[in-house]
Design a protein around this nucleic acid. Structure first.
Length: 498
DNA sequence: AAAAAAC
């Protein structure tokens, strides 16, 4: 019996070599499309789920945000459907065989674009239908024949009842964001849709990053002999997202966000709020601050919604102020940060909101503004994700008379008193180098981004202006990521109105 | 306390 410790190298964990897509029994047309997308190796959920979906089993799949769930169901789905692939132009030869449901229009659109990309070398046809836009173009597409139909529930029912599509040959049903699709708000529509599908022989696939025990139980009644695939504990947040709570008062939220954007040199961020009106107002406020801002919420026309999202994805705006319409599924490449201006009412929504950053292995930061009234919601979140999140404060340089402090934990024993000045979170940085952590996208779209920038800890507009590198050739910049349309001093002077 | 999803 030896007690000799193993050499460190001997116990060092060998990272498993990720399996490649081309080791799977997939048609060359699909492998080519996957390769076209730039993917070679599978994520854990893909490696586990694809063979099971191919085997024909029902699946309930849980994996963290940003780990490739869409590909995990759409690639094997297409593979199975290719067995009856045909090049006929007759609509009758292209009956709807797969229905994919998503909880928001933008997500349905995104999923459809993904499915179309994977299907592009096949003869399978995919289409998306969602509300808020003219039905006619969708109707024409449906009548021309579509094998894979991606939809939001309401508009799909509209088309079914208008007899624009027939679902009596559907073999596959996918619920993306399945726990949302099964919750009380969607369940009636979902059940009606399912009532139009043939009984029996159907493969059902449920995917989400969050599954409550109740939803899991409910989901079981929609599945036959399902395989439960969990590559992480359900409700786990992505490990690539650094999370932070900031104890504050309502009046300071906006300026704290501005300060953190600047101190951490955050290029782009989604700011989540709990109401449509709040989103519209906050977006206007950031706009007045001179920041390139777009709003995304359900009171906007669908045209405006799609434009806001497209402008944000294109980097034409830096801030997207959104309600929970943007909480789930949306894939915005290399988004460096998410702010919760309001703590979400549902802890699950917190997981999804912060999952807009830190996707596909990129790093991200998620900052949640917490007031005293939010104590219970914060508790719910930490319980759900089984994690305690660092709670800090951000000092604003501020001469204004203040109301009595009402920040979260103001009276309690400070839980984790942290000064969120730039250096407080640079754990890896030595004290002598108090540089703020930078959240660089993998590919910088901003030629100014890597320019040296002297961070300041001041929140005063005057100091903010001073820190801007002004040259004759380049316009004055307050930070590499925030481009003022007007002088900030004239905008921020006096701070926000109560 | 809200949002989302059909017209």
């Amino acid at each position: 019996m030896t007690t000799e410790p193993l050499a460190p190298t001997a116990v060092a964990e060998q990272a498993p070599i990720p399996a490649r897509f081309d080791t799977l029994p997939l048609d060359a047309k699909l492998l080519r499309a996957v390769d076209d997308q730039g993917y070679a190796t599978m994520t854990p959920i893909q490696a586990k789920a694809i063979p099971v979906v191919l085997s024909g089993r029902d699946v309930m799949g849980a994996a963290q945000t940003g780990t490739g769930k869409t590909a995990a169901f759409s690639i094997p789905l297409l593979q199975k459907m290719m067995r009856h692939e045909n090049s006929s132009t007759s609509p009758a030869r292209h009956p709807v065989r797969a229905v994919v449901l998503a909880p928001t229009r933008e997500l349905a659109d995104q999923v459809a674009n993904n499915v179309k990309a994977y299907a592009k070398h096949t003869n399978l046809r995919a289409a998306v239908v969602f509300g808020g836009v003219d039905m006619k173009p969708q109707t024409l597409e449906l009548k021309a024949g579509v094998e894979i139909l991606i939809a939001t529930p309401g508009r799909l029912l509209d088309h079914i009842e208008a007899k624009n599509c027939v679902l009596n040959q559907v073999e596959y049903v996918v619920l993306d964001e399945a726990d949302r699709m099964l919750d009380i708000g969607f369940l009636p529509d979902l059940q009606r849709i399912l009532s139009y599908l043939p009984k029996g022989n159907r493969q059902t696939l449920l995917f989400s990053a969050t599954f409550s025990p109740e939803i899991k139980r409910l989901a079981g009644s929609y599945l036959q002999d399902p395989e439960l695939i969990e590559v992480a504990r359900p409700n786990a947040t992505a490990s690539t997202v650094e999370q932070l709570f900031i104890s504050c008062v309502d009046d300071d939220k906006r300026r704290i966000i501005l300060k953190m954007l600047r101190d951490r040199e955050i290029k782009q961020a989604i700011i989540f709020v709990n109401s449509k009106l709040g989103a519209a107002r906050l977006a206007r406020s950031f706009e007045r601050d001179g920041l390139r801002t777009a709003a995304l919420h359900g009171d906007k026309s669908q045209d405006e919604r799609l434009k806001s999202l497209a402008a944000f994805k294109a980097g034409e705006v830096d801030l997207l102020v959104a309600t929970d319409v943007a909480a789930r599924g949306l894939d915005i490449a290399d988004l460096p940060a998410v702010f919760n201006f309001d703590v979400p009412f549902n802890a699950e929504d917190y997981v999804h909101r912060i999952g807009r950053t830190g996707r596909a292995g990129a790093s991200g930061i998620a900052v949640t503004m917490v007031t005293r009234d939010d104590a219970r919601l914060v508790g719910d979140i930490e319980k759900l994700i089984k994690k305690t999140i660092e709670l800090g404060t951000v000092e604003l340089e501020d001469d204004r008379p203040r109301r009595a402090p009402r920040s979260y934990d103001a009276d309690a024993e400070p839980r984790r008193p942290v000064e969120v000045a730039p250096r407080a979170y640079a754990e890896s940085a030595p004290r002598s180098a108090p540089a703020p952590r930078r959240h660089e996208p993998r590919q910088s779209r901003d030629p100014f981004f890597d320019k040296p920038y002297e961070a300041t800890v001041s929140d005063s507009p005057a100091a903010w202006e001073k820190s801007a590198p002004a040259t004759a050739s380049a316009p004055a910049r307050v930070s590499p990521n925030i481009r003022p349309k007007r002088k900030l001093a004239s905008l921020l002077g006096g701070g926000p109105k109560a």
